[in-house]
């Protein structure tokens, strides 16, 4: 299945409410120079197109370049060949306009700042007045009420990740990039955060790319799941997930859901094998 084919084409008629393309990655590869003439090809000819308001999950074996795709979309790296466009412009443009939210694998919290100041940071960097109600709402959302004044070193790993997710959401970004944001959470908190994220996404319809190891998580949250092969990473399969939302326990227990989990897990195994 081709990636492009699964997407609705941009409508030619401007009067029709068309789905805009939020992210397009065209033939991008990424080669890292490791020194002494050694090179590492992280990505090979990746093509992706993500529509505005879509939630896409990227799964793949470790080291398959999932995070590199996110870094390209965030404008933190540039593709060696190919092109990346976000809302029709170069990726850095979105960051400059303070319309990008990213939760990194490493939480990157400021050690001297409280939970509250860390979440308020995007407002300050953007030069906007801090929206206290919004910050409080986010603190509540990620379940850290009572910890507003705590510093990162006083929090557990999972709590720190939750702060970083709240920070990514602070400015209601147009594009949200999540790099295994729930990696350090226990299974129960993880499921709760999945549900919360699905709820926020349902409300704000932020275009989201989620990188994850967890097939269940991808299926609970995403409209489409992109399976990547091992190094050098490229898109192996794109799977449209059309379970109705909200995807509660009834759906996750269904045999269709399990069948899809099995299918994607098999694909992951196969792509792992291809890498070896």
């Amino acid at each position: 299945m081709s990636t492009i084919a699964t997407l609705p084409a941009i409508a030619a008629d401007p009067t029709e409410p068309a789905t805009r393309t939020a992210v397009s990655v065209i033939g991008a590869d990424k080669i890292f120079t490791l020194g002494r003439g050694k090179k590492l090809q992280a990505l090979a000819e990746v093509d992706l197109e993500i529509a505005e308001g879509e939630f896409v999950a990227i799964i793949g074996p470790s080291g398959c370049g999932k995070s590199t795709v996110l870094r390209l979309a965030a404008g933190l790296d540039e593709p060696t060949n190919g092109r990346v466009e976000i809302f029709g412009a170069e990726p850095r443009q979105l960051a400059r306009q303070h319309r990008l939210g990213v939760a990194f694998q490493e939480h990157a919290l400021l050690p001297w700042a409280s939970v509250r100041s860390n979440i308020a940071l995007p407002f300050k960097v953007a030069g906007r007045p801090v929206d206290d109600a919004r910050v409080d709402g986010l603190i509540d959302l990620v379940g850290l009420t009572g910890f507003e004044k705590a510093r990162p070193k006083q929090l557990s790993g999972g709590m720190r990740q939750r702060v970083s997710i709240a920070r990514a959401l602070a400015l209601s970004p147009d594009l949200l990039l999540l790099d295994e944001p729930f990696g350090a959470l226990d299974a129960v908190t993880r499921r709760r955060m999945n549900a919360e994220l699905a709820r926020i996404w349902g409300e704000e319809k932020i275009t989201t790319i989620l990188v994850t190891h967890d097939v269940d998580e991808a299926l609970i949250l995403a409209d489409r799941v992109i399976v990547m092969t091992g190094r050098p990473g490229h898109v192996r399969t794109v799977k449209t997930v059309d379970f109705p939302r909200p995807r509660d326990a009834e759906i996750t227990r269904s045999s269709e859901f399990h069948a899809l989990v099995d299918e994607l897990t098999c694909l992951l195994d196969a792509s792992d094998g291809a890498a070896a």
Partner: peptide, 10 residues
Amino acid sequence: AGRDLFSVLG
């Protein structure tokens, strides 16, 4: 990670 954060925050 701090540099990256500030970069994506614009």
